[in-house]
């Protein structure tokens, strides 16, 4: 679904991502963990075509993000760590905008918006301008917009930040259901307990280099993910 081969990204002299390779197969939830400034967000942004990169190749569903970005973007949805949405739109108008871009039919979008908004307790707020939303409500709206067009790959940067416990629970259920239906999810998080319980695969990045990747069981062995992560940090 998502293949990253030898990705390298520099900001001036600073090497943000260093020869990173990763493969995410359909049906997998892949957690991406690392310390602050490790290169997680840069990798995610490169993967969804928001940021250019210096070397390497990224493909989504077999399409290159460099040469055929539109095909890639049609197959994916992205939620950034700070969901800055169009504040002058109402929640409903924003969702309609996203649905129009992805050519979601009126019937399909109305049904999906009703279902997802109910799930996240956002139904009564959809008619309000986004300017009045709290951070958590914006995050919920971003999640709904990501699921609205049934993407095959969902890329999320710290998706649980700002969500209330109920919404976090719903999101976890939706992530699992999405992958059970053949989709894939690649997300970054600092909450190692969530990653441990939710992910099929885990990738650990440090100073732009992928230092460990594989199935959750293979990576953590008998220890907890937290212990493995701290151990790897200490080694480096």
């Amino acid at each position: 679904m998502l293949t990253i081969n030898h990705l390298t990204k520099r900001y001036g002299d600073k090497l943000a991502v260093d020869d990173l390779s990763l493969h995410i197969a359909p049906g997998e939830i892949v957690g991406f963990i690392g310390h602050n400034g490790a290169g997680k967000t840069t990798t995610l942004k490169c993967a969804v075509g928001i940021q250019s990169f210096d070397q390497g190749e990224i493909t989504v569903d077999g399409h290159s993000i460099k040469t055929d970005p539109l095909s890639c973007k049609r197959a994916l949805a992205y939620i950034p760590d700070d969901p800055a949405l169009y504040e002058y739109m109402t929640g409903r108008r924003y969702l309609d905008f996203i649905a129009d871009i992805f050519r979601v039919s009126a019937e399909a979008r109305n049904a999906k918006i009703a279902e997802l908004a109910e799930r996240f307790g956002l139904t009564d707020d959809l008619g309000q301008p986004i300017a009045g939303y709290s951070h958590g409500m914006k995050q919920k709206l971003a999640v709904i917009s990501a699921w609205l067009h049934s993407p095959r790959l969902i890329v999320m940067d710290e998706p649980f930040v700002g969500l209330d416990p109920r919404a976090s629970h719903e999101l976890k259920l939706m992530m699992r259901a999405h992958c059970d239906a053949g989709g894939a999810i690649f997300f970054s998080t600092h909450v190692l307990e969530v990653a441990e319980k939710l992910c099929d695969q885990v990738a650990i990045i440090r100073r732009g280099k992928l230092i460990r990747a594989g199935s959750m069981d293979a990576v953590r062995g008998d220890a907890s993910l937290e212990e493995v992560f701290l151990e790897l940090e200490a080694e480096a």
């Binding site: 409903r92 309609d96 649905a99 129009d100 009126a106 979008r109 109305n110 008619g127």
Partner: peptide, 10 residues
């Protein structure tokens, strides 16, 4: 809340 209107596709 604004009345829920069925959206048209654009």
């Amino acid at each position: 809340p604004a009345a829920e209107k069925a959206s048209k596709q654009r």
